[in-house]
Amino acid sequence: MGPVTATVAVLDLPNRGPFPYRGAMTRTAEVNGITVSYDDAGSGPAFVLVHGHPFDRSMWWPQLTALTAHGYRVITADLRGYGRSTVVPGLTTLETFARDTFALIDHLRIEEEVVLGGLSMGGQIVMECYRLFSERIAGLLLADTFPQGETPEGHAKRNQAADRLLAEGMGWYATENLSKMMAAYNVTAMPQVAEHVSRMMLNTSPEGAAAALRGRAERQDYQKVLTTVSVPTLIVVGRDDEFTPVADAELMHRLIPESMLSVIDDAGHLPNLEQPAAFNAALREFLDQ
């Protein structure tokens, strides 16, 4: 894993939330007609992390701390429609998210190949990035995601959920999905983590979340793309993930030549938050190979 080193100045910020980190700069960039809010921390090879739905860049706090300490420059951004980035109603495709991601990389004048990681929808955005920009990627992290295209049933369910988000807001979604986003036993065992996950969901714009759901309903199948991956790849999944079970991770592991697979015990769909020490250990092993 050896992209050319890039550096960025850093500032100390107060600790924030249950997963504090230091040495981050919160910034905004104008790309593709929207304002993107992002953090840029550390120095070294660039590692870009893409959050899942319906979250924001704060889901990566434990990894930002670990990766900057490991000698990486870490960039985490709020996707359009999420966090503090511009909300664009309608339908947002994975291609749009992917092009936003590399527009930010261009804005930051990172010319070297980047390591690119994503969780859940973020993982599918990473797959789309590889389809579009493979020559600019040095390595991949695919966490709690799956490559299959949408089914007719899934297409209908995502659009129905989008309609309900616009009509009722995020409250019902957060209530119904918290015990699936995390392993149900961790919701009570890890109240700070559960509060963080719930807060991210409740703070998400219904219009942004609905646009992403409609876009994911139109996604392509990435299984063929994964067979072309020629860079080091780490696949991570929580052992008790209900949304993207271990079988999905094993499928990607078979499709991607020489990929690494790490199954995180005592975790559901968000092992990077539920078991950050184990998740970060898997990252370190991958990056040190």
Results as ranks from 00 to 15, higher is better:
107 H>E: 13
156 A>Q: 13
183 A>L: 06
245 P>D: 11
17 G>E: 08
167 A>Y: 05
145 T>G: 08
198 S>W: 07
184 A>K: 14
251 L>M: 10
235 I>H: 08
153 E>I: 06
266 D>Y: 14
116 L>A: 09
91 L>Q: 06
10 V>T: 13
44 G>I: 08
7 T>H: 10
165 L>N: 05
93 T>R: 09
201 M>I: 15
233 T>V: 04
5 T>D: 11
201 M>K: 13
59 M>E: 15
126 V>D: 01
207 E>K: 12
176 E>M: 08
152 P>F: 03
51 H>K: 14
194 A>S: 10
267 A>K: 15
218 E>R: 12
53 H>C: 03
247 A>D: 03
271 P>K: 04
104 L>Q: 09
264 I>G: 13
51 H>R: 10
24 A>F: 08
110 I>C: 02
198 S>H: 06
190 M>W: 01
249 A>N: 08
110 I>Q: 05
169 G>Y: 05
42 G>D: 11
139 G>V: 12
219 R>K: 04
6 A>I: 14
157 K>F: 07
238 G>F: 09
243 F>V: 04
133 F>I: 04
127 M>L: 14
262 S>N: 14
152 P>M: 01
235 I>L: 13
116 L>V: 13
83 G>K: 04
166 L>Q: 08
105 I>P: 02
68 T>P: 08
278 A>T: 06
144 D>W: 14
13 L>C: 13
38 Y>T: 14
18 P>S: 01
62 P>H: 09
260 M>S: 04
90 G>A: 06
6 A>N: 08
246 V>E: 05
1 M>K: 02
211 A>D: 07
194 A>L: 00
149 G>T: 00
203 N>C: 10
202 L>A: 13
271 P>Y: 09
274 E>T: 06
192 Q>I: 03
70 H>W: 07
216 R>K: 00
92 T>E: 09
179 S>T: 14
11 L>G: 02
168 E>I: 00
223 Q>N: 09
220 Q>H: 03
96 T>E: 15
285 E>S: 04
105 I>H: 05
24 A>L: 12
43 S>I: 05
121 M>P: 05
209 A>Q: 07
286 F>M: 06
123 G>E: 05
211 A>V: 12
12 D>E: 04
53 H>T: 15
162 A>S: 00
34 I>D: 09
248 D>Q: 04
1 M>L: 00
157 K>V: 06
69 A>F: 01
91 L>D: 00
88 V>M: 03
32 N>R: 11
199 R>Q: 15
87 V>P: 04
3 P>Y: 03
121 M>Y: 01
4 V>W: 00
204 T>F: 09
283 L>C: 04
239 R>T: 02
52 G>P: 08
253 H>F: 02
180 K>V: 04
109 R>S: 12
277 A>H: 06
207 E>V: 03
62 P>Y: 11
254 R>Q: 12
32 N>M: 03
183 A>P: 01
273 L>G: 03
89 P>D: 11
257 P>E: 06
35 T>W: 13
36 V>N: 07
59 M>T: 10
207 E>C: 08
119 L>P: 11
125 I>F: 01
98 A>M: 11
37 S>Y: 13
92 T>L: 07
37 S>E: 11
75 I>F: 03
163 D>L: 01
192 Q>V: 02
85 S>A: 07
261 L>S: 09
125 I>C: 03
140 L>H: 11
93 T>Q: 07
208 G>Y: 09
28 T>W: 06
224 K>L: 07
186 N>D: 05
143 A>P: 02
